[in-house]
């Protein structure tokens, strides 16, 4: 239990200077904002489904994607995990609450998006993209950024996590 609390509301021995702290908070909040809107936009659209995305899947997860799409119950579950996962992770990162689990959850989500549709050489997708990618795309970069957020938490200094740390003290 203590370990879980430590994980959720980590005290950090890392001392940041003003510039580092500012950078970390900005990164956390911007990623949080992005997640929050991705989630809410899907929640607000009653016709949104991950089916179209999943059907384009290539590489190791294409079989799993097909299984999900072929099963309406599973697809609904996956749709809900996406919509609510993105929204809650986004909100948590923005306000700095349970920052580390939120960052790791978000990282897993975007890594899955990456792995379901990796921009590897030879893989072509008909879903339009806004940029040009080879091996590395924005999903992968966002996953890496979330790893940094998880390793260097700032919610205990600028964020709601601070109050839980205070109570513990």
């Amino acid at each position: 239990m203590t370990n879980l609390l430590k994980c959720c509301f980590p005290t950090t021995d890392i001392k940041y200077n003003q510039c580092q702290l500012t950078g970390l908070v900005i990164m956390r909040v911007l990623i949080g904002w992005h997640f929050l809107y991705e989630g809410i936009a899907k929640l607000l659209n009653p016709y949104w489904s991950s089916a179209a995305y999943l059907l384009e899947s290539k590489w190791i997860f294409s079989g799993l994607a097909t299984t999900i799409v072929a099963n309406p119950t599973l697809l609904t579950l996956v749709d809900n995990i996406n919509m609510w996962g993105l929204t809650l992770v986004g909100l948590a990162l923005t306000i700095g609450l349970a920052e580390r689990p939120a960052a790791y959850t978000g990282m897993v989500l975007v890594l899955l998006y990456y792995l379901f549709m990796p921009p590897f050489v030879g893989y072509e997708y008909s879903v339009p993209t806004e940029g040009s990618y080879i091996v590395v795309n924005k999903n992968l970069i966002e996953a890496a950024a979330l790893f940094v957020v998880a390793c260097f938490p700032s919610g205990g200094i600028i964020g709601i996590d601070k109050f839980f740390l205070s109570k513990k003290r």
């Binding site: 929050l36 809410i40 923005t94 306000i95 600028i158 601070k162």
Partner: peptide, 24 residues
């Protein structure tokens, strides 16, 4: 100051929902 630091990013949520409301 510490309380304010803890709540520092809450206004961001406000700005977010203001923009969301505007878009909708």
């Amino acid at each position: 100051r510490e309380v304010l630091k803890g709540l520092a990013t809450i206004p961001v949520v406000g700005v977010f929902f203001y923009n969301l409301w505007k878009k909708l």
